Amino acid sequence: MPHLYFRGLTVELVQAFGESLENELSAIIGCEPGDLMLEVVHTTCVAGGRVAPSYPFVEVAWFERGREIRDAVARCLDRHIRGSGVWEAEVAFRSYRPADYYANGEPFGADPAEAELDALRADNARLKDDLARARKASAAAAAGSMSTRLRDALRE
């Protein structure tokens, strides 16, 4: 993780810049070069009813790292691809949430929304208990100042 899917580029072209790309991207992202997965996806483009060359495109699937790192990754990819003789290419990012990404059946992280909801539920339970105690204390205080007649009427 991250996974980089190259379309419209040959295996040989990606191999030519792959190692230097992995080294530079790992420094930008803050991961080991071996954590990056580069895949060349073989596609067939059809335009005007005929087979046509696929447009150079890279999809980066990862855990979001913020705009600054995303911009640096896109510039790095562009520099390597266009530096290899490709006249233009596009890069798109697909972000996963750690709670929705599994390895060996285990999620990479907790869902922050679920953790927040659990904390709110705990706060709500505490507030309910506080309110029940306050109502009981208020009722006891009010009962102490009532006349015997009124208290007997309320019991019935």
Rank of each mutant, 00 (worst) to 15 (best):
142 A>G: 14
92 A>L: 12
148 T>P: 15
153 A>K: 12
134 A>I: 07
6 F>W: 00
5 Y>V: 12
1 M>F: 12
83 G>A: 02
153 A>Y: 11
133 R>H: 15
14 V>P: 07
43 T>P: 01
135 R>I: 14
137 A>K: 10
67 R>E: 02
70 R>C: 13
65 R>V: 06
124 N>F: 13
107 P>R: 02
140 A>V: 11
107 P>K: 05
13 L>N: 08
50 R>W: 07
76 C>I: 01
90 E>L: 15
156 E>D: 11
36 L>C: 04
149 R>A: 14
106 E>G: 07
101 Y>L: 08
124 N>D: 09
127 L>F: 05
10 T>Y: 06
103 A>L: 14
133 R>Y: 07
95 S>D: 09
77 L>T: 03
127 L>R: 14
23 N>E: 09
29 I>D: 02
95 S>G: 03
110 A>S: 10
97 R>W: 07
25 L>K: 05
147 S>Y: 05
4 L>G: 08
83 G>C: 02
25 L>M: 00
81 I>Q: 06
46 V>S: 08
147 S>L: 07
6 F>Q: 06
64 E>A: 15
18 G>Y: 01
115 A>Q: 15
29 I>C: 00
120 L>S: 04
23 N>R: 14
44 T>Q: 08
143 A>S: 08
50 R>E: 05
74 A>F: 02
40 V>E: 06
64 E>I: 05
72 A>T: 01
125 A>E: 13
31 C>E: 00
24 E>T: 09
121 R>Q: 07
73 V>G: 00
17 F>R: 06
134 A>T: 12
148 T>M: 13
72 A>S: 09
102 Y>Q: 00
22 E>N: 14
71 D>Y: 05
128 K>W: 03
83 G>D: 04
49 G>W: 03
149 R>F: 10
141 A>N: 07
26 S>R: 07
21 L>T: 03
13 L>D: 01
23 N>W: 00
120 L>V: 05
77 L>W: 03
72 A>P: 01
46 V>M: 13
131 L>T: 07
56 P>S: 02
135 R>S: 11
153 A>L: 12
112 P>Y: 03
9 L>K: 01
43 T>G: 08
66 G>E: 04
150 L>Q: 13
61 A>R: 15
99 A>C: 14
139 A>D: 09
8 G>Y: 02
89 A>M: 10
2 P>W: 00
32 E>N: 15
124 N>L: 13
55 Y>L: 11
82 R>S: 01
84 S>K: 03
90 E>G: 14
107 P>F: 03
17 F>S: 04
106 E>R: 11
21 L>M: 09
51 V>G: 04
57 F>Y: 10
22 E>V: 10
56 P>A: 04
13 L>T: 10
33 P>I: 03
137 A>Y: 04
130 D>H: 09
64 E>H: 10
47 A>D: 09
9 L>S: 02
137 A>W: 11
22 E>L: 11
144 G>N: 15
35 D>H: 15
13 L>V: 10
57 F>C: 06
66 G>T: 05
150 L>D: 12
43 T>Q: 08
46 V>A: 06
130 D>M: 13
102 Y>G: 06
29 I>S: 02
